[in-house]
């Protein structure tokens, strides 16, 4: 398996603070990886080390087969978390400049600009100054700056940060398009629902250490939530019989909807069929895996109290400045 990215025992400190410790990571070419974790977990430091903007204190790094991203800069697209533009520069000139810095010839770069702007819903803005665009429009332009040279590796640090739902949708489509084109995509986010929807593989970082490195399919199997959401068709239905059903461990009622927890080893399909027979359902579904639950469970195991778990859950679910996926 050819790797686009490989980190071995990477460590980075800032003074007495350990930002990243013992980080191992192997991203195959063509993969779509999500790096998740709460704010301050070490995601951006990892990405900056991958980009050779920061350098590790120890450990080894390989990017697109090179010992440093500096040797493969033109094949990498990067959207940093803290991103800006030259405010007085025209959009077309800015994108052309970024493409030229990435090795494209001036004419080639300029010819790609109108098509790309069209694709992200900003036709005809190339002659406008960057300062004349709204924040959402500007973020789409910044994203184009990262992909205009069709990179082999696309690294996006909190790409959905501060985006409105329309922009999030546009960006998500573009990221998936780049992935389909064959680019390896590594994106970081602290809102785990984003990674849940898009990524094939997730890496969780907590306090500078990797706490999970798993394919989404494997995660779903490994962290089966064993919970069924059930909403009766009739508002006055009496589902008291549900708690006595074989395989059901616990039933909780919230606003007319029931959360039914199953005993370990119980086949959810069998229980769902029985439920539908017992009480006419308006909605019956198996609860989706939520990365935040997985994350909280992992970091809480054996070392955190319930209060700490609650705080962790809040830190990974609260969108803060980031919008949820549309």
């Amino acid at each position: 398996m050819q790797l686009a990215l490989e980190l071995k025992r990477v460590r980075k400190t800032f003074g007495t603070t350990v930002a990243v410790e013992g980080m191992d990571l192997a991203v195959p070419r063509g993969a779509l990886y999500g790096v998740i974790g709460p704010n301050g977990a070490g995601k951006t430091t990892c990405i900056r080390m991958i980009m050779s903007i920061l350098f590790p204190d120890s450990g080894e790094l390989s990017v697109l087969g090179q010992r440093s991203a500096l040797e493969a800069k033109d094949r990498i697209g990067y959207l940093p978390e803290e991103r800006g533009v030259y405010r007085k520069m025209k959009v077309g000139a800015f994108l052309t400049y970024m493409a030229q810095l990435k090795g494209l010839a001036g004419e080639d770069a300029a010819s790609r600009v109108p098509r790309l702007l069209q694709e992200v819903g900003l036709p005809g803005v190339e002659s406008k100054r960057c300062e004349d665009l709204s924040k959402g429009m500007l973020q789409r332009v910044q994203f184009l700056g990262a992909i205009i040279h069709q990179p082999d590796l696309l690294i996006l640090d909190e790409p959905f940060s501060g985006q409105d739902p329309v922009s999030v949708r546009v960006l998500r489509d573009q990221i998936l398009k780049e992935h389909r084109r064959g680019a390896t995509v590594l994106l970081s986010t602290h809102v785990m629902a984003n990674a849940e929807e898009m990524c094939q593989h997730v890496v969780m970082i907590h306090q500078g250490r990797k706490v999970l490195d798993e394919a989404m399919s494997g995660l779903r199997r490994q962290f089966d939530p064993r919970t069924i959401h059930f909403e009766p068709l009739e508002a006055n239905a009496n589902p008291s019989s549900l708690s006595g059903m074989t395989g059901v461990e616990r039933v909780e009622s919230v606003d007319g909807t029931y959360r039914i927890s199953l005993m370990p080893g119980t086949d959810p399909g069998v229980v769902m069929a029985r439920l539908a027979t017992a009480v006419a359902p308006a909605r019956i579904e198996l609860a989706r895996l939520r990365l935040e639950d997985v994350f909280v469970r992992i970091v809480s195991e054996g070392e955190h109290s319930d209060a700490v778990s609650q705080a962790l859950r809040a830190s990974v679910t609260a969108p803060g400045p980031e919008g949820a996926l549309a």
Binding site: M51, S52, I53, G84
Partner: peptide, 16 residues
């Protein structure tokens, strides 16, 4: 200005 308007990291992805 480049540092305060955060364009610097974008540039550093392309140039040393």
């Amino acid at each position: 200005e480049e540092k305060s308007n955060r364009v610097i990291e974008v540039l550093l992805s392309a140039v040393s």
